[in-house]
């Protein structure tokens, strides 16, 4: 599924952030990326999604054998990549409904599929919004404008539920969430688990992994994966902090 080989990435043409990162996420698995601040966690997410200014200086990233790095962000999305942002953007004047429908139909068009009509779309949105306990009327307002932190994260989950990506990248999805919101968001993510879908859960804290249980845990430090293990690795990190494991790897 997702295969990252010896990835080197510089940000804004100078600063090397990822330095030889390799990672394989088979279909159907959830992998957590943990690491201290500044390790390159968000850089990994942005690089996979194709943000400008994140330059791959060497290495490769493929999704089902297909080179992702050669594609602009919208085509990666059409191939099934979805990055859930740590801080989702506010888009004034573009109703959330319009935004999601535009995205969905742009992806379908890119894949040569017919557009989804308004009645079916609305039916699906209503169902997903209800399961995320979102007020449907909120979706008529500008995307994320005036939304609380928890509402923005739910909006991200709503989008992924409608777009049905194959590779889900969650960047610090727990930040700014209280326990109730975290539970709802995690349930939304867990509902997306499927044998065809891979997930990369990027997080600083172990807390999120109590709710979204990973198959594998990787420690990212100084731009590389320095340790990998089962879910118990996250608990070790929570107990002992990053210092020892990062020092050992150095």
């Amino acid at each position: 599924m997702l295969s990252i080989q010896n990835l080197h990435v510089s940000v804004d043409e100078t600063k090397p952030i990822l330095r030889g990162l390799s990672l394989h996420v088979p279909a159907g698995e959830v992998h957590a990326i943990m690491g201290p601040n500044g390790a390159g966690k968000s850089t990994l997410g942005y690089t996979l999604a194709g943000r400008a200014g994140y330059d791959v200086t060497s290495g490769s990233v493929t999704l089902d054998g297909e080179d992702l790095m050669a594609l602009p962000p919208d085509q990666r999305a059409a191939k099934g990549v979805f990055l859930s942002f740590q801080y989702p953007m506010e888009i004034p004047g573009v109703p959330a409904l319009t935004f999601v429908r535009t995205a969905l139909n742009a992806q379908r068009k890119a894949r040569g599929e017919p557009e989804m009509g308004a009645p079916e779309f609305l039916k699906r949105v209503r169902a997903e919004a209800a399961s995320l306990k979102m007020d449907f009327d909120m979706l008529r307002r500008g995307l994320n404008v005036g939304f609380s932190g928890g509402e923005k994260k739910r909006m991200e989950i709503l989008q992924m539920a409608l777009l049905q990506p194959r590779l889900l990248i969650l960047d610090e999805t727990d930040s700014g969430l209280d326990i109730d919101a975290l539970r709802i968001v995690a349930e939304g993510v867990n509902a997306m688990r499927s044998p065809e879908r891979s997930m990369l859960v990027i997080t600083h804290y172990q807390r999120l992994l109590d709710y979204i249980e990973p198959d594998r845990v990787h420690v990212l430090a100084a731009g590389r994966i320095v340790a990998s293990g089962g879910p118990e690795l996250a608990l070790t990190l929570e107990r002992e902090g990053y210092d020892r494991i990062v020092a050992e790897a150095a």
Binding site: D74, A77, F82, M89, T98, T102, L104, A106
Partner: peptide, 17 residues
Amino acid sequence: FYIASRGVPEAQARALL
């Protein structure tokens, strides 16, 4: 970038914004 990352081509993303 946020809009494009959801699958909307750049020209369309600009127009939407």
